[in-house]
Design a protein around this nucleic acid. Structure first.
Lengths: 338, 338
DNA sequence: CAGCAAATTGACAGCGCTGTCATTCCTGTC
DNA sequence: GACAGGAATGACAGCGCTGTCAATTTGCTG
């Protein structure tokens, strides 16, 4: 038979209610009693039954991770965040559920409502690019579902995790400037993503600080995919006065740029063209030449965002927006300007 | 206040138990009553409370998807399967939970036990490469947790979904043979994966059927990554008598092969070297040249595997191993032998 | 050491649903 | 028209836990 809280209580010589208090880390239990109950739980290998806890109490011990699978088809970035969120939830014995949502879809809010009504998550983790979708945030607040975000665009009052992507992009471009490059192109990501805006801003910061004027022809639109990197590279390399370095807003696009440079234009990277990306996806270090990029610790970020959410859920505090440090990964795809 | 089953019952003029029978699609309810209850549920927008259902009944309405995040770090393949599983579960109002497991880890079974004890899933979906890990299957059977698999290696008696990868690989190689290629290389995947074995077998089938003897020098080991494709290509292209076509066991490795061919060896693909892969990942169609490959409908496969599992869970039958058709994607990376 | 507030503990009901088993309502049969 | 036998329905308890509130113990003050 299953071990119930009542069994634990009997073994520890207390009432079930007191055992419950220990289980939930509530106040007003003497240290001695607490220890005794903990020992009994351990000895009996007690596992609380989630359904009984949520039925009787007001919590579901469930965290939902929301993502947009429209513009992010099965990306490794989200998979890594998911792994991190899961790890944090597991550590606190919360369960996690994932919810793909299409921000463009008309039934977006209906699906959010269905999630809340059907599963009653205690809180949700928001991932780019739906960290700042106003109707969603409004609905979550109305329904009193706490949320934490990974890389939200509006950061005042936000809870979750960020990285200073603007500073990182700037540092990366300054690395190129330091190598003597002056005509540095930038392949922009999907405009709505905060990531695109920050990385573009960092690019501009670096140019401005170096006293360079931005050449509009060197800033081309991409869409975070390999294919869009290919298209952007074709556009840039066909320029009468082509760039000596390209900073793509993510690694997939950077890989597309290298692919075209080497394949169609026969340019040696980095001797004739330097290329760098952003994110440090697994492919980045396997490419030849290995890609210079910025390491974005996605897994860690998911974990931290979830941890902040859990702080709130457990009444441990108001929750903060924590910032993780970035780290340039200087590899073989960037070199001195020709 | 929340709408309870009792409210539905009252509105329909029946007892809560009868309303419960309708909710669970049980037998012995007259059609008229069933309709009346359904209408009441609709009118009141009734949502059953999962925790109450699982506490009172013997089911948890939870399906867990198990995967190995050791050898498959955040792959898009798993993300697509996950999307499919989720869709199937959603349709039946089951919730889904994902569990990363390290098959190499010593605490593997402990983690499986913890999953079962903590969350009580009604069933699990197994994904490659842990579809055939004997201790796992044994434990699941002992604990009486039904499971369905995506692409299991041992197929007798298995429940889930497969694709005839061997036939697909053979068809792909026959496509190369039809283009006049005779020296066709194969880059093998991770040996433990069923996928590697089937694709290699299909390669051999095609050669044998064409009356060709296999040249051991043309079969090189890879590991399903871009980097391993790069390494394999270097090995193959350095051969005194090099192949005119390369069949890589997946798209990532095929991309690595094209990379080396065009970059380091200056070989035009497909004019001087034909390359094909397997899986049809998003990147495949974005590459230049676009990659000839086999479309593996991962999302659909996840959905079908979960659907079979749900059939079993709902007592609708014993569950089957369904087979999905493959489709060659003949694109630009393969052409007539030089 | 009385007297009081605060800390600690427990009794008990009930969360929303389903399992068990009893009861009622049909149908067809001779 | 009485009755067997199955189909349809309902009464009731209880799943394992927590919220409420009352009871008890403890620690402190003067």
């Amino acid at each position: 038979m299953r071990v119930r809280l009542e069994d634990v209580a009997r073994a520890a010589g207390v009432s079930p209610k007191t055992a419950s208090r220990v289980l939930n880390d509530e106040a007003n239990v003497s240290e001695a009693t607490r220890e005794r109950v903990r020992a009994a739980m351990e000895a009996l290998d007690y596992r609380p039954l989630p359904s009984a806890r949520s039925l009787a109490g007001s919590r579901s011990f469930l965290v939902a991770m929301l993502y947009d699978n429209n513009e992010n088809p099965a990306s490794t970035y989200l998979a890594e965040i998911q792994d991190g969120v899961l790890e944090a939830c597991d550590a606190q014995r919360y369960s996690m559920m994932v919810r793909p949502l299409r921000a463009r879809g008309s039934d977006f809010l209906r699906r959010v409502d269905a999630l809340i009504s059907d599963h009653h998550p205690d809180g949700v983790v928001l991932t780019p690019p739906i960290t700042d979708y106003a109707p969603l945030l409004k609905r979550l607040r109305e329904r009193k579902v706490p949320y934490a975000s990974v890389s939200p665009v509006r950061q005042e009052g936000a809870i979750g995790v960020t990285m200073d992507e603007r500073a990182a992009a700037r540092a990366l471009v300054e690395h190129l400037l330091g190598l003597g490059h002056r005509r540095i192109a930038h392949v922009v990501g999907i405009p709505e993503h905060g990531a695109s805006q920050w990385r573009l801003a960092g690019y501009r910061d670096a140019l401005a600080a170096a006293g360079l004027r931005e050449d509009p022809a060197l800033v081309v639109q991409g869409a975070f995919t390999f294919g869009s990197g290919v298209a952007a590279a074709r556009q840039l390399l066909a320029l009468p006065e082509r760039p000596t370095a390209v900073f793509a807003a993510n690694d997939d696009m950077a890989a597309g740029v290298i692919w075209v440079a080497g394949g169609e234009y026969g340019l040696k990277v980095p001797a004739e063209l330097s290329v760098c990306g952003f994110d440090d996806i697994p492919l980045a270090s396997q490419l030849w030449p290995a890609l210079t990029t910025v390491r974005q610790p996605s897994r860690e970020m998911g974990k931290l965002a979830a941890a902040q959410l859990l702080e709130v859920l457990r009444g441990r505090g108001p929750g903060r927006l924590v910032q993780v440090p970035f780290a340039l990964q200087l590899r073989d795809s960037t070199g001195p300007a020709p």
